[in-house]
Simulated scan of single mutants.
Amino acid sequence: MPLSVHHIVVDAHDLPSRARFWAAALRWRVLSERERDVVIGPDEAAPVGMCFMPAVGTKQTKNRLHLDLTTTAGDRDAEIDRLIALGAEEVDIGRTGKESWTVLADIEGNEFCVVRPKETLIG
């Protein structure tokens, strides 16, 4: 049987807060919450979720792995505003202003991108 992604694991200092941020951002829900980990996903039967585990140390540099999120045409700016209202911040990481994405950071400073919807990239 081939491998498949089960969880995207994210180190966090405040597991419940970080999990709630991402659950709200993705419109998922908290599936389990224990002292050593918090798991979120669209539902219990979903093939992929996110697992938040205790971080060691502090973030020093740009992420080496990040999420690219997208939405439907016309919703991108509204989604960016919604994410900022949830606690995300826009960050400037070497952008020229001509990119098809906006870089944000979550509540613990980890970067992710909101990219232009696929239908606008194809045409």
Score class of each variant (00 low, 15 high):
Ala23Asn: 03
Val48Asp: 00
Val48Cys: 08
Ala25Tyr: 02
Val30Glu: 06
Ser32Ala: 13
Ala46Pro: 12
Ala45Trp: 01
Asp37Asn: 15
Leu26Gly: 11
Ser32Glu: 11
Glu33His: 12
Cys51Arg: 13
Ala23Val: 00
Arg27Cys: 03
Ile40Phe: 02
Arg20Glu: 06
Glu44His: 05
Leu26Asp: 04
Arg36Gly: 11
Pro42Phe: 09
Ala23Trp: 01
Pro47Ile: 11
Arg29Tyr: 01
Leu26Met: 09
Ser32Trp: 01
Gly41Asn: 02
Cys51Thr: 06
Glu44Asn: 10
Arg36Pro: 09
Trp22Cys: 06
Cys51Leu: 04
Ala25Phe: 02
Ala24Phe: 01
Ala25Thr: 08
Glu44Asp: 12
Trp22Leu: 04
Trp28His: 14
Phe21Asp: 09
Gly49Glu: 00
Gly41Arg: 03
Asp37Tyr: 14
Trp28Thr: 13
Ala45Ile: 07
Ala23Arg: 04
Pro47Tyr: 05
Glu35Ala: 15
Cys51Lys: 12
Gly41Cys: 05
Cys51Met: 09
Val48Ala: 10
Arg36Tyr: 03
Ala25Trp: 01
Glu33Val: 10
Ala46Asn: 05
Val30His: 07
Ala46Lys: 06
Pro42Ala: 12
Asp43His: 15
Asp37Thr: 12
Ala19Gly: 12
Cys51Ile: 00
Val39Ser: 08
Val48Ile: 10
Asp43Lys: 13
Leu31Glu: 06
Ala24Lys: 14
Ile40Ala: 02
Phe21Glu: 11
Phe21His: 08
Ala19Val: 06
Val48Gln: 04
Asp43Trp: 07
Ala45His: 11
Ile40Gln: 00
Ala25Asn: 06
Ala25Glu: 00
Pro42Lys: 14
Phe21Val: 11
Gly49Met: 00
Asp37Ser: 15
Val48Thr: 15
Arg36Ala: 12
Gly49Thr: 06
Cys51Trp: 02
Trp28Asn: 11
Pro47Arg: 13
Ala19Thr: 09
Ala19Cys: 11
Glu35Pro: 13
Arg34Pro: 10
Gly41Met: 02
Arg20Lys: 14
Val48Met: 02
Val30Gln: 04
Val30Leu: 06
Arg20Met: 05
Ser32Asn: 11
Met50Gln: 05
Arg27Gly: 10
Trp22Glu: 05
Pro47Val: 13
Val30Ala: 07
Asp43Glu: 13
Ala23Lys: 04
Ala24Asp: 10
Ile40Leu: 00
Asp43Ile: 08
Gly41Leu: 00
Arg27Tyr: 00
Ala45Met: 06
Val38Gly: 05
Leu31Asn: 08
Pro47Glu: 08
Pro42Asn: 13
Trp28Ala: 14
Met50Glu: 00
Trp22Phe: 11
Pro42Ser: 15
